[in-house]
Every structure is written in C-alpha cells, then in structure tokens.
Design a protein around this nucleic acid. Structure first.
Lengths: 124, 124
DNA sequence: GCTTGACTTGGAGCGCACTCGAAGGAGTTC
DNA sequence: GAACTCCTTCGAGTGCGCTCCAAGTCAAGC
C-alpha cells in the first residue's frame, strides 16, 4: 500500500493541496488522513479512491453539503445503504435533468451559430 | 408590440426583477430598457427575445463577462459577425466538453448506484 | 388628500467553493 | 549548521452571481 504526500495526492487527483486540506476539514473525507511522524499527511490508496468518488460527485454538480452527507453515511458503516442509494438516485435525477436542459439550450445556440455561419461565409 | 413591467418580464423570463435590473446595469442588455413616464421599466418583445438568448448562454454556463462581450458585439451592429461566431463556437466547444465530462462521471456514479441497488434489494 | 402597491436607486450582503497568506516546524543537502 | 523545501495551522480573502435593503417616487383608488 503506497502512501502519498499531499503534493503527490494533489497531482494524482488533479486537486490542489489547498483543496485536499479544505475537503478534510469540511468533513468530506471518510476519516482524518493519517500523519507521518512529522505531522505531514499521508494519503492511502483508499483515500485516493474516496477522493475520486468525491470528485465525481462534485464534477456532476453535487453541492459540498450533500457530499458531506454522503460521506457521513459511508462513515457510519453498514446498514444505511438505502439512504445512500436515495441520495445518489436523487442526484442522478438532478444531473440528468440538467444535461437535458443544457443540451436543449445548446441546440438553440447551434441555430444561432448556423445563422452566423451563413452571414460570415454566405457561400456555405 | 406589447410592453411589460419588470414584474411581468420577470414572470415571462423566469428571472427575478432583481436579476433583470442586475443584468441591465452590468451591461448584458443591448440597450437601456425603455421607461414609462413614471420611470418604471417597460420591456419590449425584442428585450424579451434578447433576455432569452442571455438565459441560454447563462444556462449553458457562459460567464457573465462573456455574455457582456457578446452583447457588446451585437450592440455594435453589423460587421462583426465573425467575432460573434468565434465567441459562440468557443462556447459551444466548452459546453460539449463539459457535457462529455459530466456524462462520463455520471456513468461511474451509475455503477455505484447499481452496487447499492444490489445491496439494498439483493433479489434484483 | 391619504393609503396602497409597484416601482426606482445605490450600495451592501450573501452563499458557495475554493484560494491564499503568514508564521512556523521538520527533514534533506551541502 | 545554514539553506532549502515541503509541510503544518488558522483565518482571512477572492470571484462569481446574484439577492436584498432602505429610502424615496409615482399613479390609482377611496
């Protein structure tokens, strides 16, 4: 099991060291990240996998507070899988709705683009 | 040609009156909205169509400052269609990339959901 | 003429998600 | 042992996009 410094974890996850510390103190991690004798953080593979999940939730627009709720459920351990599922399903629905909305707005913008392409290169 | 009060325009566009005023003072409108003798704003159909375009750009994640740039180009009048096209094409590319990213993250989340569904209802 | 309600302005405030700065400690390199 | 680098914490600052407030104006109804 490798364990990484915060800078290495930052590089691996694509987040900044600042953000990793921020996530930890904001309750988004499953537990406090382990420390070397120097007090420096040491990230395990498990930490990295969790951060990846957090990244996915964030990248799909889940607010920090909901990620925190989800983390709390996972932290509690077995028995609340139904709640976790509810949370993820609700999120999924929001995301799909947003995708549909953005897609439809994008189509309208595409129409505008087509008009401008006609104006700019009338031959086409 | 109808002309609407700010409250009516807000209802029509789905924005708040606050936001409509904010857009105007932040340079997102094509020109100052006309006023009744009382000083109250009167929105024309043209205003509403423009606000719809702004809404589409915003809903697809275009930052206010870019909407302002686009508004400035349209305000300038004929002759800069190529620039407007560039701006929209650049935006379009960003949006498509984001859609792809969100979609891929969502698929990963769906895997997680499938796992939980298995835990919660093992029979399925 | 008084009240009511919709509107006006300028400017302050807010929620979110970071992002950064200052001051200091530990470990490595010469 | 001095310099350098990487890390620590606490707390403040930033950028975005609204969102709201206070004080005032105007038109209509009673």
């Amino acid at each position: 099991m490798t364990s990484l410094s915060i800078a290495e974890a930052a590089e691996q996850t694509g987040l900044t060291a600042h953000t990793l510390r921020y996530y930890e103190r904001d309750g988004l991690m499953l537990r406090s990240v382990e420390r070397a004798s120097s007090g420096h953080r040491r990230y395990t593979d498990e930490d990295l996998r969790w951060i990846q999940m957090v990244t996915r939730l964030r990248a799909t627009g889940m607010p920090i507070r909901d990620v925190r709720r989800y983390a709390a459920l996972v932290r509690e351990g077995d028995g609340n899988e139904a709640e976790r599922l509810d949370l993820l399903l609700a999120h999924r629905q929001v995301v799909e709705q947003q995708l549909a909305e953005v897609t439809s707005h994008l189509r309208a913008i595409d129409h505008k683009i087509a008009l401008y392409e006609h104006t700019v290169r009338p031959a086409s």
